[in-house]
């Protein structure tokens, strides 16, 4: 509670949290008022301007942009969270285990991590995505993003775990007979929880941006609409050239707001969690 009180003192955190949780709540509860089953149905002509009937106009296939954006928002958040969970989990496990164990295991895991870091992840993402002719779903895209972004988490967490392993309380736990997993779970992970959470936030933001980027170049999910897919379709349909701002700006703004909110939360948390930065 003290931590939360400290966080709430940060205006950056408050703004970020309001924006982000507001978006989450909207994504969860808006479908009770907006029928998403008809999101893919044609409701009017091509690129109708925003009006009382269609608040954000229609897309190139005559679909209501409000519904598409809501569906896209949910999809992008799903991809962001799934990719974030995967990248954070894998990265944290690899980083903590390697950092704590040290020796040859650390060397091997570290080499493995560095190997993944030097492979250009976005290129891998494009190549794998392009080769998936069938079943390029939201889940597959999210797993792909998570599978290519975990090394950054592993590297950061390893450095933290490595510095923790020589602390007194770890030595005491070892003397008392705790095994490696117990020490990691009970004595290291709690120390890193705030750090891992911050990493998770950045991984979610990275997941949303990666999905948008890969969808923007036409390699996004085939089974659903996402914010990146909306932008890709608007770009391909020449919306920008015809001044159809409602095809580009709303989706771009939503992506910007989410990622900006996550950055604000991350930065403000760093200010609270890091003793050197704490005011």
């Amino acid at each position: 509670m003290k931590l939360l009180r400290n966080l709430l003192k940060s205006p950056m955190f408050v703004i970020g949290a309001v924006l982000f949780f507001g978006t989450i709540l909207f994504a969860i509860f808006a479908p009770f008022f907006i029928d998403l089953k008809t999101a893919m149905d044609r409701v009017g002509g091509q690129y109708l301007e925003p009006s009382g009937s269609f608040w954000l106009g229609t897309d190139d296939l005559g679909r209501d942009y409000v519904k598409l954006l809501l569906q896209g928002l949910r999809s992008s958040l799903y991809v962001g969270f799934l990719a974030g969970v995967l990248a954070t989990t894998v990265g944290t496990l690899v980083g903590i285990y390697g950092g704590f164990k040290g020796g040859i295991i650390d060397d091997i895991l570290n080499m493995f991590t560095n190997l993944f870091i030097v492979i250009p992840s976005f290129v891998v993402l494009i190549l794998v995505s392009a080769s998936l002719e069938q079943g390029r779903s939201l889940t597959i895209i999210a797993l792909l993003i998570g599978a290519t972004t975990w090394p950054w988490t592993a590297r950061s967490v390893r450095a933290q775990a490595s510095s923790l392993k020589s602390r007194d309380h770890i030595s005491l736990a070892r003397i008392n007979g705790a095994n490696t997993l117990q020490i990691i779970y009970k004595h290291i992970l709690p120390y890193l929880a705030s750090y891992v959470f911050m990493v998770f936030i950045m991984q979610v933001a990275s997941g949303i941006l990666s999905e948008s980027a890969i969808s923007m170049i036409g390699l996004g999910p085939m089974d659903n609409v996402s914010l990146g897919v909306i932008l890709n379709q608007a770009k391909n349909a020449g919306a920008l050239g015809d001044g159809i701002w409602w095809g580009i700006f709303p989706a771009s703004i939503i992506i910007t707001v989410i990622v900006f909110a996550l950055f604000l939360i991350n930065n403000s948390m760093e200010g609270v969690f890091n003793p050197r930065l704490r005011k």
Partner: peptide, 18 residues
């Protein structure tokens, strides 16, 4: 599931397939 193959980025064909 059957798939309709079309070149990515060919906007008129993509919309047609959709």
């Amino acid at each position: 599931t059957l798939t309709i193959k079309a070149p990515a980025g060919w906007s008129d064909w993509e919309a047609t397939v959709t």
